[in-house]
Amino acid sequence: MTEVDEESGHVEARGVALAFGRREIFRDLDCRFAKGRISVLMGGSGTGKSTLLRMIGGLQIPDVGSLRVAGQELVGLEEAQLKAMRGRLGMLFQNGALLDSMSVFENVALPLREHTSLSETEIAERVHGRLSAVGLSDIDELLPGELSGGMLRRAALARAIVMEPEILLCDEPFSGLDPPNVSRIEALLTHLNRDRGLTVIITSHHMATSLRMAHRILLLRNMGCVDGSPAQLASSRDSAIREFLGQDGAEYLAHHGHELEGAEG
């Protein structure tokens, strides 16, 4: 099990503002994602969850403010510097973003072929290991267009973790998955976090799973965010937060309320 440093922000945003034309997404956003922890970004549609993930990946640069990823200030970096920084990240996109002209195997093997000098046998071994970890087998030759939505997302997750990144960004990893596969992906992400100290940042609407696996939840609203442990948010007096977490939040609190008391004590 890897030691985690609660105080060390692996990703930190300070005073971040971003607007698309007249539409303001963030205004003076401050948030921190601890190293070696699982953080879940929540919020209604259009609150900027995916945009925040894209900003952490350097795909979207804030208009104002500072964004530090793994100790490096991202704002103002040249494309070549961003490329070097992205080598430490893995990202699962909402639609998978697999290259549609390449087979599943080729897609997952691509970063290994580009950035390592592994032999074809070693690459095949590692690709099959990752595909098997996400519950996929015998689909090497299939094209992304031949996969179901859930299979596509799992193949994309295999690609995101094949280079063993320090920080994993997952945009809605559970959406479109059946319950056994939700459990499988939850177990995989928890295992990667616990055993390898992977910092995981997830956006999700899957309330029960998020509450269960998250060390920290960040709720985006009003162009900013509120954050806390699942128990802290579930016991919040803010009616909007309680309403957002709904029945899952109440059930979580019923089972984990003692953690909150322990933390407060």
Partner: peptide, 18 residues
Amino acid sequence: GAMRTGQQLDGLRMMAID
């Protein structure tokens, strides 16, 4: 254009591939 729309170009960037 279809690769851009399907975020495949962003996917490449996130794999540190230009």
